[in-house]
Each structure stands twice: as C-alpha cells, then as structure tokens.
Design a protein around this nucleic acid. Structure first.
Length: 734
DNA sequence: CCAACACCTG
DNA sequence: CAGGTGTTGG
C-alpha cells in the first residue's frame, strides 16, 4: 500500500514539485473521454478479458512446454511466409515445408520437371524414398510408410543416404562456383499452375516487371536475369537440401514410430498390425486409413516437428516415468517392459537426430549465407524481421524437466533458431543467463529517493508474476535486466533529421537492414567483448554516426531569445534533436518529474535557454500526460472488468499497460533495461488511480492532484550514463 | 512576475 | 508533440 498520507512530505525534494497546480480546469472532460471506453468494455466483458487486461501477470503458456525448436522452425518459417515473398531461399523453405505438411508430394516431381538444369547425378542419387514418392506421393510422407522395415535396413539406408547427401552437396557446391550461366526464363521456373500460393504472385510480379521494362534496359535486364538465374540455381540447391532433410526426418520419424508404436500397434484401427504389414500395399491402406481417419489434431503427428517433440519428450520423460505410464500417443495401454529399450533407442534416436539436424541446418544456413554474401543488390525487405517480441523470451518456458537434466537437446539451444542472424555468423546469441559480469553500463546509485527500490515491493504476488525472465533476473544487481537486444543489430540509429538512416526507408522500423547485418553483428560482438570498458567512453565527436551532430536547431529559430546565431550551425549540436527526445523518453523510465536543473545536467550538450528548457519541460509534461492517461484508462478498465481490489492489479513486463507505456517511451524497444522500479511506480500509480476512482474521488475536478503528489516522490535517480551526450549509443549498443 | 504545471487542442 | 491557456506557489 503506497503511502497515501505522506502528502505533506513534498518538501523532501530539493526540486520543486508543484504537481498540484494547474489542475482546476478539469470539468469532467476525462469522464466524457472514457464514456465510450466504458461502453465498449461493458459490451465485451468476459472473464478472459479480465484476466488478460487487468490481471496483467497471468500468462498461460501451455504451448511452450510442448514446443521444440524444429516445430518452431517450421511454424515460424511458415509464418514468415508473407514477408518472404521476395526472398527466394526462405520462400522455398516455407513452401517446401508447407507442401510437405500438407502432404502434397507433387513438389518433388515439380522440382525435377521444371526445366531447370538439375545435374544428372543429383537425380540419380535420389534415395529410395524419394524415387518411390514419385510414383505414389503419399508414400513417403507418413511415418507409417515402412513400419515393417527392419531396423538395420533403416540404419543402412540412413548411412547410405548420408553419404549420398554429402556427395550431392559437394557436387552442388562445386556446381555453384562455376555455373551462373545457366539460362532459363523466370516465368518457367515456377509454373503458374503450381499449387503454391506464393508462386503465382511471384511470377506475376516478375512478368509484370518484364512487360514494363523498356527496350533500352535490355542489357540491364540481362544482368538481372542472369542474377535471377543464379538465384534460382541456389534456390534449387536449397530445395534439394531441404528435401534431403525432410527425407531424413521422415525416415527417422518412421524409425521413431516403429519403436514407439510397436507396443500399441494392435491399437491401430482396422486391425492393421504394423508388425504384420510387411507389404507395401498393405502399408498404403494403412496410411490412407490413418491419414483419412485422423483428426486434424492427430494430423499434426505427421509434422516432423511434432515428431521431434515426442522424441524429446520421450527422452525426458523416460527416466521419471513410472512403470506402465506412457506418453499420450501410446494411449492407455502401458507396457512397462519396453520402457528401458525404448529409452535407449530414443536416446540413440535423439543423438542421430541432433547430428542430422545440426549438419543439415549448418549446410542450409551456409548456403543461405552464401546467397546473401553474393547478392550484389540490396536484399528484399522480405528478409525475416529481426524484431523479436520480448514476450517471446519472457514467456518461453519449457518443461521444467528439460532444465533439470542435461538431456535437453543441446543443439536446440534456446529456440529462435530460425532467426537468420543467429546462425549468420555462427555467433551464439548470448542469453540473459550468459552474462556473468558487468551487466549494465548503467549503474543506479542507491538513492534516498527510492524507498523500496531494491526489494521488490510487498504487493507482489508470486503466482501472479509468471514472467520467468523477470523473476530469473530478480537477483541481478539493481533490478536491471540484460536481455539480448536482437533488434538493435538491425536497427541503426535514427538520423538526426528523424529519417531512418538505413537504406530502407520503410515505414516499419522492423524493416531489416540486411546489408548492415554483418557489420552490426560484429559491432555487437565487439561491444559484447569490450563490455564495460566502454563505460563513459565518450565517442569521438567526429564519429560519423553522431546523432546530435547534424541537428539543426529549427526549434531555436523560433525562440525569441536566441542569443547566438552560431548556435544554428549544423555541427554545433546545441539544439534538441530527435535523439534528445529519445533520450528524454528513456529518462522518463527513471524520473517523471525532472527538475530543470536535472535536465540541464543530463542534456549538457544542449545550450540551454528559456526556450530549450521549457521545451524539455514540456516534453516531460507530455510524457506524464500520456502516462497518467494510460493509468486512468487501465484503472477504469479494471474497475469495469470487475476487479475487486488493488491486490489484483499488478504491472509486469508482459502486461498490456506496460506494453503501451513501453511502446510510447521505448518504441523500438531498443532500450532493454527498463528499470524494475518503473514497473513498481507504474503499479503504484495504477493502484492509486484505481483506489481513487473506486472511492469516487474522480468527481472532484482536481482529484488527480493527490495522485500526482504521490507519484512525484517516486522518481529514481537517473543513471549517470544519461549525462553522456552519447549515452544513446552506449545504451543501445550495450 | 515567473516558472512549472495540467489541461486542451491541433 | 507543440502551442496555448489557466492556475498556483514562490
């Protein structure tokens, strides 16, 4: 419970906190403003909304427990689909996967008959599964394709296939190095009748572009088409590799289900016994039966990712499984005596899987990297977005068991593999757990201003704080987190004039700066290694990226008391630039009511005059305005949603309120160290509003005055680093 | 008077 | 986010 009664202690601050002035003019406009809001809330009231909107920290993540990397990879790849339209490799990946998942076997034959110059060796080295799949497309796609195949057969097949694959890949690589002169026309590459949803669009665009091209550009067009052929070459290679991977997956899947389903094969419908059906025709029946009879849910069992899920689950669950207890897919018929052998086999299977996935992924990634390295013109915007929702990290809880034993598949790391950046430089993305020293450049000094800063306030409810990240980081020094800021690698600094400095002036800041990726990555790496050495290291004023450098004091020109015309000089950098605004917003996480003296301290690179000062003050006033509006809005929502007491109101990093605030003050999410204290203050504010409204104080025109008085005392000390004119670089690139 | 504030408006 | 305005404490 915040100190309601302390309103007389305002004098503790040296700075003037006249939060009580200027509030008289309110004549119920706020209530009017929220009338529609109220109405909408009433219309859409249901308990779930209550939980999500109000009880901010309640999160359900049942899915994440089941998830595994490949599954995510597949899903994410599919989800990237829309953004990948112009990125051939990834498009292929998603298409391939999608085709496979929708058991459309035609893709393989499509690839071979599309007129592309596929080297003969590749075709002839198709493995059994692939060639047979040409005859009956479905045959290879089911895990039950060959349940009768002997174990060693599969092993042998796998080995052979591995060798074949390696030879093929080498062949491919060799071919890639000296065969960019293959001539094939774009339109024929992806037949219009192809079932892939993307292909028509793609070819349509290509055709359209072709039609529009004037004759003068023919040579350029030739160049383009040559490049495209190159790309198509690589695309095909990627396809092939993916096919290989999928085949291997299928085989492993079969193997897995053999091990796994042999115990309950009698369970299978139609009395088909897997052990008995040695003949492929019987198998086909079996497949079609199971395929057609399976519900949508069960169809996901054919998903390789799901298969991996189960493999992983098998490995992890076996040791702690009681006798007779079996994974869900086994149904109720437990057979404990199989469990030991199953465990061993599952482990072996997992090992094989790991190796295979590692090598295959490495190859694919390498190829992709090559494609990128060779691409001479800017990459399409379809490159997978780098923005990573923070809750994806905070939320992603795996099964606890996965953490307690080291059987957690190491190659799977911590998810997010599909992000090309991760594999781009083979750099291991540092997770928050990896950082062991010198975490924040920003060190908050103990301030007398923050009564409950270090220990989390008493009002937290353990059950209501599900964010594992924040709880895990609760022990890190002064409530700073250090999640890895992936996005900053793709988000160069805003230019002083407010336009993004990247080559892509897209409206979306998540639009990638692919060409800068490697540079940014290395820069990040050096930042990582140099760590705290960069603390307070002033970046050279002639630094090309100096954001303040080019700022033109447009604002100043409006000021009557402009003293020196030299202030307008572009390089004097004395005005308030967009980066100053950004900095001010970040500072708001610490202080809601900065004194003008404080502002002068922290914006030392700005030549202060009355105008600048009031502009800065105005900024913070605007920040507060937004802040309080949000607070009131969410408080009223909570009331409308039937929240009984303030105890149910918490502000955590994954709640909507925080997101709204963070969106406002930390839009690009480039500042990943939003102090815990800010959450506390926000929660207190929210509860203040809640209490006041519940008590009906909002009838008083100046009812917020009391709240302001409370909140203005909760300011934290702004970290020293904010005093640096270049703090943005240091903060964001840290 | 003036700085600082909240509120309103564009 | 900036401009304008009314309010208030010093």
């Amino acid at each position: 419970m915040p100190d309601h009664d302390n309103t007389s202690l305002l004098s503790r601050q040296t700075k003037k906190r006249r939060v009580d002035i200027g509030v008289k003019r309110t004549v119920g406009t706020v209530s009017l403003a929220f009338a529609h809001l109220k109405a909408s809330n009433f219309s859409a009231m249901n308990p779930h909304v209550v939980e999500q909107d109000v009880n901010c920290s309640v999160v359900q993540h049942t899915d994440s427990e089941k998830s595994n990397v490949l599954h995510k990879l597949l899903k994410r790849t599919n989800s990237y689909e829309d953004t990948l339209v112009t990125f051939p490799g990834a498009t292929i990946i998603s298409q391939l996967l999608k085709n496979n998942l929708t058991k459309n076997g035609a893709n393989e034959s499509d690839f071979q008959s599309n007129g592309l110059s596929r080297t003969g060796s590749e075709i002839h080295q198709e493995d059994v599964c692939s060639s047979s799949s040409r005859g009956s497309p479905q045959e290879c796609l089911s895990p039950f394709s060959r349940p009768s195949m002997a174990q060693f057969d599969i092993d042998r097949l796998t080995d052979e296939h591995l060798r074949a694959k390696r030879a093929r890949v080498e062949n491919i690589i060799r071919g890639m190095s000296h065969s960019p002169n293959v001539t094939n026309r774009i339109g024929e590459t992806e037949p219009d009748g192809a079932p892939q949803p993307l292909s028509p669009r793609e070819s349509y665009r290509e055709n359209k572009r072709k039609q529009k091209l004037p004759q003068q550009q023919q040579s350029f067009q030739q160049l383009i088409s040559a490049r495209k052929e190159q790309k198509h070459e690589e695309r095909r290679h990627l396809k092939l590799q993916l096919e290989d991977m999928q085949k291997q997956l299928r085989q492993l899947q079969e193997k897995f289900y053999q091990i796994y389903d042999s115990t309950d094969s009698e369970n299978d419908e139609d009395g088909h016994s897997s052990e008995d059906s040695l003949h492929s025709d019987g198998m086909d029946n079996h497949i079609s039966d199971s395929v057609t009879n399976r519900s949508e849910n069960e169809m996901s069992d054919l998903d390789p990712g799901h298969f991996l899920d189960q493999a992983q689950a098998l490995i992890c669950e076996q040791p702690m499984m009681t006798e007779g207890e079996k994974p869900k897919r086994d149904g109720s018929r437990g057979k404990g005596h199989r469990s030991t052998s199953m465990y061993a086999e599952g482990k072996q299977l997992a090992e094989t899987l790991k190796q295979e996935l590692n090598t295959a992924m490495t190859q694919v990634v390498d190829t992709v990297v090559k494609v990128f390295a060779k691409t001479p013109y800017p990459l399409p915007q379809g490159f997978p977005t780098l923005q990573t929702p923070s809750d994806r990290f905070a939320v992603n809880r795996e099964h606890p068991n996965f953490h307690t034993n080291n059987q957690r598949l190491p190659c799977f790391g911590d998810v997010i593999i599909p992000n090309p950046l991760n594999s781009f430089s083979n750099m291991r993305v540092p997770s928050s757990n990896d950082q062991t020293e010198a975490l924040p450049l920003v060190v908050r000094k103990n301030s007398t201003d923050q009564p409950g800063s270090l220990p989390t306030p008493a009002n937290h409810h353990p059950g209501l704080h599900p964010s594992p990240l924040s709880s895990a980081m609760a022990f890190s020094p002064p409530s700073f987190r250090h999640p890895f800021p992936l996005h900053i690698m793709g988000y160069p600094f805003q230019s002083p004039l407010g336009a993004p400095s990247g080559p892509y002036p897209g409206k979306d800041r998540s639009s990638p700066e692919s060409m800068d990726l490697s540079r940014e990555t290395t820069s990040l790496r050096t930042k990582m290694s140099s760590n705290h050495l960069s603390l307070h290291r002033p970046i050279s004023p002639t630094h090309p990226g100096n954001p303040e450098g080019l700022s033109i004091s447009l604002i100043k020109s409006e000021c009557g008391d402009l003293q020196d015309m030299s202030d307008i000089s572009p390089y004097s950098g004395k005005g308030l630039s967009p980066n100053h605004l950004k900095k001010a917003k970040l500072m708001f996480f610490y202080t809601r009511y900065p004194s003008s003296n404080m502002l002068k301290m922290f914006f030392s690179d700005v030549k202060f005059n009355r105008c600048i000062t009031s502009q800065l003050i105005k900024w913070f006033s605007n920040f507060r305005e937004f802040y309080y509006i949000q607070m009131e809005k969410f408080a009223r929502q909570a009331i409308n949603d039937g929240v009984a007491g303030v105890e149910e109101l918490t502000v955590s990093r994954d709640c909507e309120l925080y997101r709204a605030l963070n969106m406002h003050y930390n839009k690009a999410n480039d500042f990943e160290q939003v102090p815990e204290r800010f959450l506390e203050v926000a929660q207190i504010t929210l509860r203040e509003f809640f209490n006041a409204i519940v008590a009906g104080k909002d009838v008083d025109p100046s009812w917020k005055k009391a709240i302001y008085k409370v909140i203005c005392k909760l300011d934290s000390e702004v970290p020293e680093i904010f005093k640096s004119p270049n703090c943005l670089q240091e903060l964001l690139h840290e």
